[in-house]
Amino acid sequence: MGNYSKSAILIIKTNYDKLTSVEKSIGDFFLQNREHMDFSAKAVAEKLYVSEASLSRFAKKCGFRGYREFMYLYEECFVEKKDSAAGSVKLVLGTYQELLNKTYNLVDEQQMKWFSRQLSKAGRVFVCGMGSSGLAAREMELRFMRIGVDIDSIDNSDMMKMQAVFQNETCMVIGISISGEKEEVLFLLKEAHKRKAKTVLLTANTDKSFSQFCDEVILMPSLLHLNHGNIISPQFPILVFLDICYAYYIAHDKNKKEALHDYTLKALTGEKENDFI
């Protein structure tokens, strides 16, 4: 509650011991109540089965000139709650907007075109990440497999180490690490690069050493440098990038890829193959 409501509650608590049993029941109601309602003397008196005069005596015992003055102070908490909620909405949406603006400034159209071409050319695509980045990797797999990409997501450290052995020049490996410090992800990228696979790192880290084992480093906006950045899911910048990448990828041979998407949708809904081929 805001400052005004804290004062109202504090006043009730301070004067509680000198209240009569009826007045204490009134005080208990206001101390425990969390809902904004009709606080008119008539409505509250009916709700508590007390007289309006009892409400007036309660307010005066608490140091107010009457019930109306007490209620003016008490109702401030609900106004502040509303403002607080609106502030939270603005904070979240404002942070999203800042991330979108940063993403817009970071997106390199030539890089997106290169990335889309490599997805089309690769025999197999592996996308890996740990934690929330692993969830984003899974999302990428689900989306791109539906438009014909032979793609697998990996979010297990042991699987990343084992999969590194099987990379070759026909493969493409995409590592997701906003911090750029996930050893498992970097290990797979390094090993894949040694085996001539195309390697891409999605990160907010601008460490130049990544270029030694990554064909491309695609920069994401960092949550760490945003005010209140911890209220936003760390997946958000990655998912925005995936949407952009998806748009670039599907724009090439759009009809074919949209048809593939429709086929998978029909397969999921149980239609027979000869119904849509």
Rank of each mutant, 00 (worst) to 15 (best):
I26G: 02
F78N: 11
N3H: 09
S153V: 04
I250F: 00
C77A: 15
D243R: 10
A204V: 03
F241S: 00
L224I: 07
S233I: 01
V44A: 04
V165S: 12
E139H: 08
Y96M: 01
F29I: 09
E69T: 06
N15E: 09
L242D: 04
E271Y: 11
A45W: 06
I154Y: 01
C128L: 13
S21L: 15
R195D: 10
T264A: 00
I178H: 03
C214K: 04
S84P: 01
S233V: 01
A86P: 01
K113V: 13
F241H: 03
V173N: 05
F115I: 11
D215L: 07
R146V: 03
L55I: 07
K60N: 11
L226S: 02
N255Q: 14
L260Q: 13
A122K: 03
V217H: 01
D155R: 11
D28G: 06
K18C: 11
A164S: 15
L142T: 07
S88T: 14
K254I: 06
R65N: 15
V173D: 00
H228R: 06
T20L: 10
G63S: 06
C77W: 01
T264Y: 09
K272E: 00
D158F: 14
T269P: 02
L265D: 09
Q111T: 12
E273I: 02
A45F: 12
K102R: 15
Y74C: 08
K13L: 13
A137R: 00
E184L: 05
L99K: 02
L189I: 03
A192M: 00
C77M: 15
H252D: 15
